[in-house]
Nucleic acid binder design. Structure first.
Lengths: 339, 339
DNA sequence: AACTTTTGTCGAAACGCTTCGACGAAGCGT
DNA sequence: ACGCTTCGTCGAAGCGTTTCGACAAAAGTT
């Protein structure tokens, strides 16, 4: 394995010159640069990442804090991860997956003080999140995917839930639906202060009011069965319901099945709009789900860009970027039947 | 940030002694060890990962080579990634996601010669895979998830497709199904030599013969629509067909929808068994899919363990470990109707 | 009792890079 | 032609560890 010293010797220059060619920190004459570059090529030289990291105090690696709950990642999260990874690579950075529980401060502290990572992307942010306090204390640069209840002083990239719910409800109302159910995440998420659950709940209320239509919110488990149970409950509480908004991809499929078995036709009897849904899952359903497609990859890429920017210029001010899910009309929404 | 020198000074020993306490490379007296440990605790000392990596030539990071095709990862792949990550962490290692195309040798070479990673986990292995040759040439330790056509001299961990297909067909035959369709991956995958596609095709033939039943194989796209098209074709070619084996989760849902719309009842008219399927997706379907559940997380963990073992003892001999998918009977398979 | 080993510790030399200060050679305004 | 800045390069001092050789003291071997 060739080292910088080898390159320097071969090019007839000093080690520091080689380093300057590599990093561009100081001007180098064209002639010298060419000689150095040639030497590198001939020797198949690759800078040693560890040595470089030690000397420069930057690893060019960012960590992705991802609480692995044991259950699989949804398509949205996956897209996020891949988006972030790609964006990092394009900027010459690497992405390290860090399966650290939301309140495993021990582990996170170790990770952050090891100097292995230049900064962090924080996923699955809670409304009050201990990781945020810790990272702040340790002065590690980080960007949240999501928001705490008070995002001042933080850098966040998140889905614009208010807008998304608003657009979804608007879509249903435009189609003539006057009674709309919102199948949210579970009671437990709501209680634990999970941001998306709380924000969408509020946004749903607001949207109903704005359009002067009525509706119910039913929290439920993020599973197919959860969807079945929820739609049953919703129809009991609101028999005249013709529009359904559902937070969870998995629940959406359950809802479709349950409605079909109840002898109701989707979209003609009931329209269903699924939120924060990936294309893959939307297409799995029959008919394919009309959905608010989550900008998973875009979110990941945006978050990464923001983090890298901040690493470069040391900026630490408040920053917020909200990306809406975009309405993708497929087969589960249609004009409401005349009463 | 405290360094080892600080700890040494505080404990009244030399730096090397502190290092020995940390790494256990040489015997240290109980008394000294305690003093050092105490000093570390008082100073909140954390070894610097870069310095350690430079000096020891090991980063304690393994790379996961994952061709990101742009489309999202399936549940199986996701489980694999999380399984690997967890296993690595338990052994004091980190996992880095490396989105490197199957034939982006350039990128891989850079990655491997950078000395950032101690070894590689290789996903999405092709029957003839250039990455394998490259890693071998560079003498980078690696473990394949999957197999090349000639796995001699390699370390592989893979799904036992032969066994899995065998079990699935056996299940259908036991239920009395005499004509079985196998909906495989696409023609393109087959042509490009994608291992799972080819291996299952062969295993399917063998299983049919073994049980003396008839069947067809239909390759198709890994989408819901793909499943619809394929089942239509299968029924045309084999009208008496009552059992379906399907490789792809997404296609499985399409098949269910198509059969339903054709007025056929699953499982009573046709039984469907989905292969290499995750629980989440299986439960999404109505009825829930009878499936060969893929051991995603277990595979990831196994691969990681093998890799770390090899890193530790420098072993480089052939190794192969095959994990079967296990049959999970849910709602889409039942006794064949008497003719 | 005279040896060899093992144990516990130290000092110093790497590991392969970045970065700082220095310094001659140009380039420039006057 | 005189200082002044800018350019291009070098040497050397880190960065924070691990690891090697050395060595005294303790423990085993005959």
């Amino acid at each position: 394995m060739a080292t910088m010293t080898d390159v320097a010797r071969r090019a007839g220059v000093s080690v520091s010159t080689v380093s300057y060619v590599l990093t561009g920190t100081r001007p180098i004459s064209e002639a010298t640069r060419d000689r150095v570059l040639a030497a590198m090529a001939e020797l198949d030289y690759q800078p040693n990442a560890m040595a470089r990291g030690l000397a420069s105090r930057r690893s060019n690696i960012v960590g992705l804090l991802l609480p692995l709950t044991g259950r699989a990642l949804g398509a949205t999260e996956t897209a996020f991860v891949t988006g972030a990874t790609e964006a990092a690579r394009e900027a010459g950075y690497h992405l390290m997956l860090c399966p650290v529980g939301t309140d495993d401060s021990e582990e996170l502290q170790t990770l952050a003080t090891q100097r292995l990572l230049d900064g962090f992307l924080v996923m699955e942010v809670q409304l009050t999140d201990r990781r945020v306090d810790l990272l702040r204390k340790l002065a590690s640069p980080f960007v949240l995917i999501g928001r705490t209840d008070d995002p001042s002083g933080l850098a966040c990239v998140d889905i614009d839930f208010e807008q998304t719910v608003g657009d979804a409800v608007a879509h249903l109302v435009e189609l003539g639906h006057q009674t709309i159910a919102y199948i949210n995440h579970s009671d437990a998420s709501l209680a634990s202060g999970y941001g998306p659950a709380k924000r969408t709940a509020a946004a749903f209320e607001a949207a109903l009011e704005r359009h002067g239509v009525t509706g119910v919110m039913v929290p439920t488990e993020d599973t197919s069965t959860g969807g079945r149970v929820a739609i049953r409950e919703a129809r009991e509480r609101c028999p005249q319901l013709t529009g359904v908004l559902v937070m969870n991809e998995n629940a959406a499929l359950g809802i479709l099945a349950e409605l079909r078995e109840a002898g109701l036709d989707v979209p003609w009897d009931v329209s269903v709009v699924s939120m924060v849904t990936s294309e893959v899952v939307a297409d799995l359903a029959s008919p394919a789900l009309t959905a608010m497609t989550s900008p998973g990859a875009a979110l990941g890429a945006a978050a990464t860009r923001v983090l890298l920017e901040r690493l470069a210029d040391g900026d630490t001010s408040t920053y917020q970027e909200l990306l809406p899910c975009v309405l993708e009309i497929r087969g589960t929404s249609a004009k409401a039947r005349k009463k």
